[in-house]
Design a protein around this nucleic acid. Structure first.
Length: 292
DNA sequence: AATTATACCAACCGCTTCGGA
DNA sequence: TTCCGAAGCGGTTGGTATAAT
């Protein structure tokens, strides 16, 4: 298929992007199926890399950057599609806690997911949640909420749904005495998320079952993982000033409107998730803990 | 049914880092 | 060691689909 054919087919499209591109030598905007085919074919034969060359040789009027991005984010055969699993969501929260907005680094631990996907997930779901709570997504308060409430709930749900989740985290009972739990310990039956460990969570459900040999899932810590980022994680230690816990208690007010609460839960796991990650009893418990 | 708001995500932009000459 | 092009990365934008009014 030649490039003229590609161009013709797009001129037939009503998209507003098209008209602008006619005047430029470099095409921008959405990729057509023909372009995808050209790029995929070329990479299949010649491999990745030298993207400017790829663009030229494949007969694409795209920049090398654009080709690279299209391949990595859409055409790569090993990409996973569909909604993030609970395991993936939990891992994103955990890794973001460690590394912040290092999307590419985080995505490396989610086989088949791209940095763009992870970034979009964070922006749409997690930031939406922060917005609901009327706080900054990077604030300590929000991080604590993540650590205290949603991350344990994710673990619980994963356990419940798979029955085989081998959390690398240890329950309160088998934790060494010199390393007391730093979480709230809701209801004593909840898993405690251990932000001290250096290795990544071991996943045994859909994510890892088919990818267990993937080196990106190695449980050995990378230099960075063992480094200082963890110290910035959701510690519940000292508090951040006079209004800090008061602010937390305000979010976790048991009397929060039911619809709003549902909405908040939906932010993280979607409406079709297993069950609510939130209940009023826990909110009350948290409030008491936090006000101490 | 039409309009508006919101959510999602693909793609772009600009900066930084890397690697080879 | 320096320069320069390629590649990588994170932030942002804009289009489309869906929900709400």
């Amino acid at each position: 298929m030649d490039f003229d054919h590609v161009m013709r087919s797009q001129y037939d499209s009503p998209s507003s992007v098209r008209t602008e591109e006619v005047t430029s030598d470099v095409r921008k905007g959405p990729w057509t199926a023909e372009e995808d085919a050209l790029l995929a074919n070329h990479v299949k034969i010649h491999g990745e890399g030298r993207w400017n060359l790829v663009a030229r040789r494949a007969g694409l009027k795209r920049t090398g950057k654009s080709c690279r991005l299209r391949w990595l984010n859409y055409l790569r055969p090993d990409l996973r599609r569909g909604n993030m699993t609970l395991e993936e969501q939990l891992l994103i929260l955990e890794l973001h806690c460690r590394w912040g907005n290092r999307w590419s680094k985080i995505a490396q631990h989610l086989p088949g997911r791209t940095d763009n996907e992870v970034k979009n997930y964070w922006r749409t779901r997690v930031q939406k949640l922060a917005k609901h709570l009327k706080c900054d997504v990077n604030s300590k308060q929000f991080r604590d909420a993540m650590r205290c409430v949603w991350m344990p709930r994710f673990l619980e749900q994963i356990r419940a749904s798979t029955g085989q989740f081998r959390a690398s985290t240890q329950g309160p009972s088998d934790r060494p005495a010199e390393d007391p739990p730093r979480t709230h310990g809701i209801g004593s039956g909840y898993p405690v998320y251990d932000d001290h460990r250096d290795s990544l969570p071991e996943l045994s459900s859909s994510v890892s079952s088919s990818d267990s040999s993937d080196p990106r899932f190695s449980s050995s810590p990378s230099p960075n993982q063992a480094g200082g980022i963890g110290s910035e994680c959701f510690g519940l230690g000292s508090g951040d000033g006079p209004n800090y816990w008061t602010g937390c208690a305000q979010w976790w007010r048991p009397g929060v409107d039911a619809g709003e609460q549902e909405d908040i839960n939906g932010c993280l796991v979607g409406e079709d998730s297993l069950e609510s990650l939130w209940n009023e009893e826990d909110a009350w418990f948290l409030q008491q803990q936090l006000l101490e």
